[in-house]
């Protein structure tokens, strides 16, 4: 079985890829997907800690429980986020972040 460090490394890589996507990509759907990627990186960390932090030979289920919550919230968030993107496209006819500059002061 792989060690805890390997899991954390993979999780950190996923998170970094997600963050880079959020900051650099211009297509808002891709940005959204990268956001999900960051959530799942966090989930992986939680599961890894839960698995390696044993108590009487059993994993610590608190971490697993938290993962379920994150997945639920993420599902809700996807529903709302996609709805926002659709509404945005309808009004502005674009999903490129470069062209969404209404807040510029």
């Amino acid at each position: 079985m792989a060690s805890l460090n390997e899991y954390l490394l993979v999780s950190g890589l996923l998170f970094a890829i997600g963050l880079a996507g959020v900051v650099l990509r211009r297509n808002i759907i891709v940005v959204f997907m990268c956001l999900e990627l960051m959530l799942n990186a966090a989930n992986l960390t939680l599961i890894a800690f839960s698995r390696f932090n044993t108590l009487d030979g059993l994993p610590n289920y608190n971490g697993l429980m938290l993962v379920f919550f994150v997945i639920t919230v993420a599902a809700a968030e996807v529903a709302v986020g996609l709805a926002i993107i659709v509404a945005l496209y309808r009004t502005r006819q674009t999903i490129h972040t470069d062209e969404l500059t209404t807040l510029k002061g």
Partner: peptide, 12 residues
Amino acid sequence: RRVQSGNLQAYS
């Protein structure tokens, strides 16, 4: 005012 760039990525 310059802080408010209007660029989503800059905010994030």
